[in-house]
Amino acid sequence: MKKTPSPKLPVLPLQLLIILLVGLYWQYGLVDTHLFSRPSLIEPRLVELWNGAVGLPPLWRQVAETLGATIAGLAAGILLGFLLGVVFAEFPLLRDASAPYLNAINAVPRVAWVPVLTMVFGFGLLTKVIMSGLIVFLVVFFNVLDAATHAPPLLLRNVVVLGGGRWASMRDVRMWAGLGALLASLPSAVALALVGVVFAESLAAESGLGALMFNAMHTGDARDLMISATLLALIGVVMTGSVQFLQRLLAARLPPDIAGDRHD
């Protein structure tokens, strides 16, 4: 990509300029305030919300709830997805027999699980965690399963020759192959965990950033909408960004074949 021999035009000032112009336009330009509100209107509302406006829990608690549900779902989905992925890779009968059902579940557009889960588990925190965990599980499981199934056959043969059994195969070969896939899919998993929570909150949950957002949508409150949407966007970007950063760090320090090289 860096094939232009000429000195690079500094883009950062330009980008900052663009952001500034957009911000200024938002405040002073021809903008539908019913949709986007204005920074000057939002700022007082933000302060008001933070400590708990009338009838609403404090904003920081809503943020914590959404964040907490995301992290819980992420952890559960990763753990389960990784373990089952490695085990199923080692026992092909298990994998092949359950394949059609797992694929059927995977084929359902994720958001469709929300009504079902809501009916079973209600409108609370549990549904959010389960929804988030389910989405993460599906992504992690299939990626880990694929990598662990296609673990280097030479190494698997080596385990047999050295006298190891199924457990050795899983622990010394498949697990590491799966780990590579897990690390590679981590940013997607993080992003999806958050989306899962928002999906769950979209159906009139009582609290959480997503609930705030969709309630604002129904009442037509552009300020709350902008605040919650922006917070969600920031959380998403920060979480995914940090994971990507962590990924790069690990990739440099871990032995190869773990860092993974997926791009989806």
Binding site: M1, K2, K3, T4, K8, L9, V11, L14, Q15, I18, L35, P187, A191, L194, V195, V198, F199, S202, M213, F214, A216, M217, L225, S228, A229, L232, A233, L234, G236, V237, T240, G241
Partner: peptide, 25 residues
Amino acid sequence: PLIRRLTEPFLQFFNTMPRVVIAPY
């Protein structure tokens, strides 16, 4: 390359933010 470098951070931002937040809008 100029366009790419200019747009990269913006596109990354919109890619990593949960796109579902545009649904209400």
